[in-house]
Design a binder for these strands. Structure first.
Lengths: 123, 123
DNA sequence: TGTCAATATCGACGTGTGTCGATGTCTGGG
DNA sequence: CCCAGACATCGACACACGTCGATATTGACA
């Protein structure tokens, strides 16, 4: 056991800066970061985020994304929901269309996880 | 599709530099990167990698890691195997003990995925 | 108002994954 | 030579996950 103090959990807005190499992360920190990693641990969702990020203005509607996949529309909708609930993209409804916007904060948080202390970057 | 210059696939040593935001990544690129992300999309494995990274010299034997968890030894051994097969840690046998070493190249590759083009880092 | 297009939700199905206990393999020591 | 410790492999189980077709919801437009 150990850890598991009383926290509300869920993938709120934590995981701002949790480098793995600085010191052993706690179970709570791990549980806070994992939802984002789990959301991207799927080829379709990783491509979806990449498509949104590299699209005009870092945003794209579902109809822009659908043609890039051989998957059914509900499947893409499901994947976008997972990305949204993980805090990786925002939702914005405009008329009939729904636009998804990448969240730079989430990208920064993910990048900070893998930062190595100086002197440990040996390729 | 298309692209896919001649690569053997599998989670070999690719994924050196695959930023999501630069341009839409290909399916092959996604499939190449996902094993690493999937390996870390688990609280236990994320903590294991953090423990190894922050341990003396970026290495630790199984007996060093076991006490930090409430899981059975075969379970930890399984998770370490997943991390190893994803290219995140190296295995090194010394006498009766087996040491796991973090791979800085993998950390750098993962970090590069989330790099944003200048002018897009809006906190 | 009625219809169509865009997107989300629902229920179901097959597959993948984390966990365990039992057992196998290898190394060092008496 | 045999025993004990460190670690891996195996088989099994419950659960989570990706996918689909069918259906509901919402907004635009004639």
């Amino acid at each position: 056991m150990s850890g598991s103090s009383g926290l509300s959990g869920s993938s709120g807005s934590l995981a701002s800066c949790v480098p793995l190499a600085r010191e052993p992360i706690t179970s709570d920190q791990a549980v806070g970061v994992v939802p984002m990693l789990k959301a991207l641990a799927d080829p379709t969702r990783l491509r979806l985020l990449s498509l949104v990020l590299s699209h005009e203005g870092g945003e794209a509607c579902v109809c822009d994304l659908l043609p890039h996949f051989d998957l059914a529309q509900p499947t893409i909708s499901h994947h976008l929901k997972v990305l949204h609930e993980a805090g990786l993209v925002d939702r914005e409804k405009r008329g009939t269309w729904v636009y998804y916007l990448a969240r730079p904060e989430a990208m920064a948080a993910l990048g900070s996880i893998f930062v190595l202390p100086v002197g440990q970057e040996r390729p």
